[in-house]
Design a protein around this nucleic acid. Structure first.
Lengths: 151, 151
DNA sequence: TATGAAATCTGCGGAGT
DNA sequence: ACTCCGCAGATTTCATA
């Protein structure tokens, strides 16, 4: 199990994954060695799965975000497996979840702009066999977006 | 503008933000100095917004994810501002978008489990004035989840 | 906790395009 | 002017006691 000090480390590394052990130690009022060992332990035990750079979507040409609700035609094991496999390969699909409710799957899609979105839908998504229905919610603005969980 | 070398750096840092300049240099067939300068430039120009540790949701007690579609009662400027402000403060809300379609806002919510989810809905979300309707999609499984954009 | 060697970071001078 | 390289002092990492 992890204690409050570990949780503080996780909080700080969520905000800035490149913070040095020295900086962490200063904020936690510890010496460098125990911090170093705690971070290694958190990585080893899988609490920390990795470290990512957060990029500016607009600047790198992914200014458009769309949430797409997919409904399957038939819920056979084979059809589900096929759709999942195809969706998984699409680079525009950042996230895909099997959800409860009206629809079966929820996709977060990121593309450059509206023409790119149309191409994605026409050339890729609708070519996948087994999808009965697509309902899209285009993101007009981001009210909140964080990757930092409340540890 | 950024070139192919910069894009490679972005790709690599999206996968592992803690990669050293030495490692980056080896993969890019460059010496350490230009890599160092390019990374600093990408940070300075805002292509890189920061670095985050990716945590294991289950392990840190956020095993349940729910997408919530909110519809507002009235779309006055004042009501919108109020709802946005309240939602922004909720630690369970990881993301909130203003979207097109049937509903007004889409929220990604992360909580420990079903009781925690119920508490969140009853004690926090439904106490916000101005929300007419909530439609929830509970995540049963994650088919795909990546933070790495196709740079 | 503290020490110290190894690795890495980081800024500068300089060369090539 | 831009991007590269190598050098060297400062800083950080990480094993050891």
């Amino acid at each position: 199990m992890i204690d409050e000090t570990d949780r503080k480390i996780l909080r700080l590394l969520q905000e800035n994954a490149r913070m040095t052990n020295k900086e962490l130690a200063a904020k936690l009022d510890l010496s460098i060695t125990p911090v170093y060992e705690r971070v290694k332990k958190l990585e080893r035990k899988g609490y920390i799965k990795g470290y990512s750079a957060r990029l500016d979507h607009e600047k790198i040409g992914k200014g458009m975000m769309v949430f797409m609700h997919l409904k399957l035609q038939v819920h056979t094991h084979e059809n589900i497996r096929h759709v999942i496999e195809e969706v998984d390969h699409l680079e525009e699909v950042m996230e895909c979840y099997h959800v409860t409710g009206e629809t079966d799957y929820l996709l977060k899609v990121m593309v450059k702009d509206m023409p790119a979105y149309e191409t994605f839908v026409v050339e890729k998504l609708t070519k996948i066999k087994g999808i009965a229905n697509i309902n899209s919610s285009i993101v007009m603005s981001t009210v909140k977006s964080t990757t930092s969980l409340d540890v």
